[in-house]
């Protein structure tokens, strides 16, 4: 008997809930793993809104890492600096409206960005300068991201049970769950 996967008529020509350029916005995902002390960058997802971004991030990045907290940040809200770019030597002293920023540090090439902490700063460049002064030592840190704190969309702690626990006892989600026949050798 043969029964193929049904053809979903018209799916490809229907565009729903996307932004004007027909692409969903990109969101950067940060997960605090169980036992971890800080949120770790986990790459990105695409989603039309914050709620969908959180759900997509959960389904994409919590399948194999057991997480206890989840953040998504619109990619466009993040200002980025790396060691090859010049930075002002001193902080901005302008007293105008300051606000809270979250700083993420990459400590060496190839490592993931880690949430380092919060700082009060006048603007994105000022936030990067202050993050460098506060969180980097001379021998440490090759890149910094900053985002206004209010740009962070965090999973509601009351929903942690629903978001994170279902992954806890599902060994079959891990590749190591499956026995590999001897003939296959190393994969």
């Amino acid at each position: 008997m043969s029964y193929s996967v049904p053809k979903i008529a018209g799916e490809s020509d229907t565009i729903v809930g996307r932004t004007e350029d027909h692409l969903w916005a990109r969101w950067e995902v940060f997960v605090r793993p169980r036992g971890g002390v800080t949120h770790v960058y986990s790459e990105s997802v695409h989603a039309p809104d914050a709620e969908t971004a959180l759900l997509n991030a959960r389904d994409t990045y919590l399948r194999r890492v057991e997480g206890v907290s989840l953040w998504v940040i619109p990619s466009g809200a993040i200002s980025r600096w790396d060691e090859h770019q010049a930075l002002p030597e001193s902080r901005s002293e302008e007293g105008s409206a300051r606000r809270l920023w979250e700083a993420f540090i990459r400590h060496r090439r190839g490592a993931q960005f880690l949430h380092a902490g919060s700082i009060v700063a006048a603007d994105a460049v000022d936030a990067i300068v202050r993050a460098r002064d506060a969180f980097l030592t001379k021998t440490d840190g090759v890149a910094i991201w900053v985002a206004p704190s209010e740009a962070i969309v965090a999973a509601d702690p009351d929903e942690a049970e629903m978001l994170f626990e279902p992954f806890a006892d599902k060994g079959y989600r891990q590749a190591t769950y499956y026995d590999i026949p001897e003939e296959v050798g190393y994969m």
């Binding site: 979903i8 997802v45 997509n56 389904d59 994409t60 399948r63």
Partner: peptide, 20 residues
């Protein structure tokens, strides 16, 4: 049955998760 047919990769993963 629907896996690989979802309108977005993220949704494909979500549906696979829910199926599991």
């Amino acid at each position: 049955e629907y896996i690989s047919w979802a309108p977005e990769l993220e949704e494909d993963l979500a549906i696979a998760n829910i199926a599991l």
